[in-house]
Design a protein around this nucleic acid. Structure first.
Lengths: 179, 179
DNA sequence: CGCTCAAACGGATACATCATCCGGAAGTGT
DNA sequence: ACACTTCCGGATGATGTATCCGTTTGAGCG
């Protein structure tokens, strides 16, 4: 990837800044262009699809999740590790609405996004394996299923006031323990 | 509401029949009209908003949920009652994708829909109260929160193959039990 | 500097989709 | 058969999407 020209970098930054003030679900490129003071073409050139823009918006949050996953991998107690990981994942997904689509999208991402996602999934798998081995979670769950459960919880929290998300996380963690 | 004229009833039925073959999330009125062999205006007259159409599509399923809620209310064991109710709710929501929006929408529904929803919620509250009193579920949960959890689980199941939904229900039920 | 050229810009425009409105067709009651 | 109401159809204006290309701008170089 060749270095960005100065005006291009400026446009990109303005678009992202404006986009951040919008609901990630309903991004209208023409409107973003107007608000950012650039042409529509510029928006489409920087972000060919809506997903590309969502990805760029979620990138910082994804990096934070990557770091926190590493920390969870370093945590010796498998129960604590999984509680921390699911807790932070839920927290970050609620903070950045575009994170869920990025995590779930199977392909078509920028290289750095793909790399970060791979590391996160790998770490997640390691933690889940250890937790299974230690008998602190149900043995019949795949990584994908647990990911989906976190997404489901995000959905549940969003349906309410989103202030007290604690019970939801507790319910998830309690539900994951073996019978 | 005056009785429907015969041609109107026919149009309505054709539209509903066609709509049932589509994803409830992306209903395009113009396309439905073409497929149903009626004019667009006819579709908009019968269903002024997308929500109205979704409601009509979900109506039968809503009635089934109403009946099953009654049965759960009649069940003496609170633990069994709540397991049955949440299980059938999850099942029906997965079967009829339009059910979740109808259940969550706060107003603007047809009278019979509103009545059915009221009965369901009331029954749900009764069961939850009994379950709380019997100490089989966490005491800190509102009806709304539990509803949202079921919706979250629906979302989680939909992200996967949707074939084995059993673990999800088990996890939810286990999570709801007091610590 | 001034020049050159590739990179980036803007927005007119073609295309897709939504939702309304009204002249006319069709059902209903007498 | 007639009159009256309800309902139908789809042309149409409004709204939004995505591309394309002539113009502008920045970066490197003599």
């Amino acid at each position: 990837m060749p270095a960005l020209r100065s005006d291009a970098a400026r446009s990109r930054a303005r678009i992202l800044e404006v986009a951040r003030r919008h609901d990630p679900g309903t991004l209208r490129f023409n409107e973003l262009a107007r608000e950012a003071g650039v042409g529509v073409g510029t928006v489409y050139r920087h972000f060919p699809t809506t997903h590309a823009l969502v990805e760029a918006l979620a990138w910082e949050t994804l990096e934070r999740l990557q770091v926190l996953t590493r920390e969870a991998v370093a945590e010796p107690d498998p129960g604590v590790a999984i509680a921390n990981l699911l807790g932070t994942a839920l927290e970050l997904q609620l903070e950045e609405g575009g994170l869920q689509p990025v995590l779930l999208s199977p392909e078509d991402e920028a290289d750095d996004v793909r790399a970060a996602k791979r590391e996160i999934v790998t770490g997640f798998e390691a933690i889940l394996d250890r937790a299974r081995a230690a008998g602190v979670i149900r043995p019949d769950l795949t990584v994908a299923q647990v990911e989906h459960l976190v997404c489901g919880m995000e959905h549940a929290v969003r349906l309410g006031d989103a202030t007290d998300r604690t019970p939801y996380l507790e319910i998830l963690l309690a539900g994951l323990r073996p019978a």
